[in-house]
Design a protein around this nucleic acid. Structure first.
Length: 719
DNA sequence: TTTTGATAACTTTTT
DNA sequence: GTTATCAAAA
């Protein structure tokens, strides 16, 4: 069946059909850019281009998956063949293929930022900088940015040598040692994935030529978010056929802090002199009033390509701006408003609350819980960042790559098996002195001085365990292997025993069960495509997974997320919150004009997510770090030229939000007492703290939830 | 060696 | 207001 282009407007069609080489599609928010990309790919396939020789790169797994799904819809059987990946997943796929050229182990580990931080801290200690290890996070970001800019440790050293300040020299020393440690561990960090791929293509002409010829067409989504490494990568891959199509919106570039360079999109026409430019300005998402507000804000930016979204839609409610006294009232107001929307027949899944920083989610969470409305927070505490999940995955990593010292260090004493801090120090000392990995020293613990006899035995037990699991993993699926790990390592048994003394262990057991379920689910999904997921494949996938990927927009609940995460999504009703100077835009006093423009783009992203209803809220005072600050309304509110004093939709919502202090008859509780809470249900008092007005109780509820409540305010009663 | 409790550092955004 | 890290106690 031929691809039906009738569904595209003329500009979209020209984007989908153009065949003359480099193409820039400037696609404003809600103008159907994914549609152009998928139709373009479908057209190419229809015209005879083999699907497997088309490369489409995105920034999120979700976007890649969506693209594959939509191609499949247009060309049955072809969706899975197209190389539709995130930049990082694409890099892993290619690096895995050529791992021996880069002297990497086949099962190289991918380090996330917490692994990076550990390694940087280690490096700093070895360099005698232990007094500054609180700056480890800063050095992690310096190193990551250097990698984004394709500066490896040597290049960075040259660059640092020319610098006047010694700080850069310090960074360079840390970078060099950190990189050595990564290599020893057989690990790559996120930045390395792209850096090493660029290196591979640069230094191995055969490989470069192969991929340059192989990919007949290259498409890049969200081009405004590409960093230098990604820029060089796409340019290199497109050098031969020059069929490069980049799609993006300079007004939605919000990742400069991660190395994204907005110039890549602004100067595409300079890079490709014969580039065709298609601009999409017809918006299919929002009402005209929402678009007007968005435009009034974004037009204040200097460095942008001038364009203006328009819509055929008419009417719609005006954008509401509401000022509340503090963040608790802000949350209550938003939640009350959502309740009204629901009464008016809207479904909860149509509503979303956006904020600038994750820390702001708490007050909304509390208000939603109090109101009994189901909600879902996307991105705050990633499932895969939970301690027990990380432990399980660390075992898995060690089994496939024992050189991975960070993971080995993590699990060597979990569950506690008598290999403590002092022993670890001695092992590490020996490892450093002899140029060995931690694992190597385990295997020859008899040569390591000063270890106690019991410790030596425990080390032998652990190495035997890892070897045994390693050979077992070959035969098992990923889920089978992880279940085996939890069993044989004694982790299950240990955590189960912990539940006796530590009520939070119950939740952790549940999370591990959830992990196993997730792995099984993933296996089932891939099995349909006829592939087997072993532990290696699974780990690869999971290291590149984000919380957003698991987000299911059809669930009947309110969605809470940062504005960054909201990019690419849309909701009928949007609450853009915390619009205050210093918070959104953040850090207003000492930020550069460029930073401010990025904040403005972020506000623009937030506004343009709304389809029908948009509420912008601002709290007059806000508690940050335990201190109360009075903030001015955000300049973005003023720029949107909406009245700050537009009447709140329902007056009676004010004043009822703060929990009224309960009368003075203070109930006293004792440990072990049964209690009842209107929204948490029944539970048991675990411990008491404070006295008088500040008396608190820690309660274990029967549904597994553990909460600390202030007796004076909590609607808690003896059961 | 392990657990507990205190304190300091943190918050911008994350593939 | 929290979480990670470090010191002291068991």
């Amino acid at each position: 069946m031929p691809i039906d282009l009738e569904k595209l407007n003329p500009e979209q069609q020209s984007g989908a059909l153009y065949e003359g080489g480099p193409l820039l599609v400037l696609a404003g928010a809600g103008t159907g850019k994914t549609r152009v990309i998928t139709y373009r790919i479908a057209r190419l396939i229809e015209a005879g281009v083999p699907a497997e020789r088309i490369l489409a790169v995105t920034f999120t797994n979700k976007a890649a998956e969506e693209m594959r799904r939509r191609i499949e819809e247009l060309c049955t059987g072809k969706g899975a063949l197209v190389w539709a990946h995130t930049f990082h997943a694409f890099a892993v796929r290619v690096l895995r293929r050529h791992h021996e050229l880069l002297k990497l182990p086949k099962h190289f580990t991918i380090y996330d930022q917490s692994d990076q931080k550990k390694l940087v801290t280690e490096a700093m200690k070895e360099l005698g900088l232990e007094d500054q290890t609180n700056k480890a996070a800063m050095y992690v970001s310096i190193i990551s940015r250097a990698k984004d800019d394709l500066l490896d440790a040597q290049s960075y050293a040259i660059y640092a040598a020319t610098a006047v300040d010694s700080a850069r020299q310090t960074a360079s020393r840390i970078y060099t040692l950190y990189q050595k440690k990564l290599e020893n561990a057989g690990a790559l960090d996120f930045g390395d994935l792209l850096l090493k791929l660029c290196l591979l293509l640069k230094e191995h002409e055969q490989v470069r030529t192969y991929y340059q010829e192989y990919f007949l067409h290259l498409l890049v989504d969200e081009y405004q978010d590409t960093n230098h490494a990604q820029y060089i990568l796409t340019k290199t891959l497109a050098a031969k056929h020059r069929n490069i199509c980049v799609v993006g919106d300079d007004d939605q570039s919000v990742y400069s802090w991660r190395g994204a360079n907005i110039r890549n999109i602004l100067e595409f026409e300079r890079d490709f002199k014969d580039a065709k430019v298609v601009t999409l300005e017809q918006n299919y998402r929002s009402t005209p009033l929402i678009l007007e507000a968005a435009h009034k804000v974004i037009r204040n930016n200097k460095s942008r390509k001038v364009k203006k979204l328009w819509t055929e839609k008419t009417g719609g409610d005006s954008v509401q701006v509401v000022e509340l006294p503090n963040e608790a009232e802000e949350a209550s107001w938003v939640v009350r408003r959502i309740a009204i929307l629901v009464e008016d027949g809207r479904s909860l899944k149509e509503t979303a609350i956006f904020y600038r920083t994750n820390a702001q989610s708490r007050s909304f969470e509390e208000a939603l819980r109090r109101a009994g409305l189901p909600y879902r927070i996307v991105g705050a505490v990633r499932f895969y960042d939970r301690k027990e999940v990380k432990d399980a995955l660390a075992y898995a990593r060690v089994i496939l790559n024992p050189a991975d010292s960070v993971s080995l260090g993590r699990i060597l004493n979990i569950p506690p098996r008598g290999i403590g801090k002092t022993s670890l120090e001695r092992l590490e000392l020996y490892a450093a002195a002899n140029g060995l990995t931690l694992w190597d020293t385990f295997c020859r613990q008899d040569q390591v001085p000063q270890l106690t006899a019991s410790c030596r035995k425990h080390i032998d037990d652990l190495t035997a365990l890892i070897r045994k699991l390693n050979s077992a993993a070959v035969e098992l699926s990923a889920a089978g292997a992880i279940a085996r790990i939890l069993e044989d390592s004694g982790y299950w048994a240990w955590l189960t025993a912990e539940t006796e003394t530590d009520p939070e262990a119950v939740g952790r057991l549940n999370n591990l069960q959830e992990l196993l379920n997730a792995v099984k689910e993933y296996e089932e999904k891939i099995k349909l495509a006829g592939e087997f997921i072993d532990l290696g494949r699974y780990l690869e996938q999971v290291s590149l997974q984000s919380d957003l990927d698991a987000y299911d927009p059809t669930q009947p609940c309110v969605t809470l997320m940062t504005v960054h995460l909201a990019k690419g999504l849309e909701y009928p009703a949007v609450f853009l919150t915390g619009l205050e100077e210093g918070l959104f835009p953040i850090g207003a006093n000492n930020s550069s004009p460029e930073d401010l423009e990025e904040e403005r783009r972020l506000a623009y992203v937030g506004i343009t997510r709304a389809k029908e209803l948009l509420y912008m809220t601002h709290a007059a005072t806000r508690r940050t770090f335990g201190q109360v600050y009075a903030n001015l309304p955000s300049r973005f509110i003023l720029e949107a030229q909406l009245s700050l004093h537009s009447a709140p939709p329902s007056k009676q919502t004010f004043g009822v939000s703060a929990p009224a202090a309960r009368p003075a008859h203070v109930v006293s509780y004792r440990v072990g007492q049964r209690v009842r809470h209107p929204s948490f249900g029944a539970g048991r008092v675990l411990e008491l703290s404070g006295s008088g007005e500040t008396a608190k109780v820690k309660v274990q509820f029967d549904d597994g939830r553990l909460t600390k409540l202030i007796v004076r305010y909590a609607p808690l009663e003896p059961a």
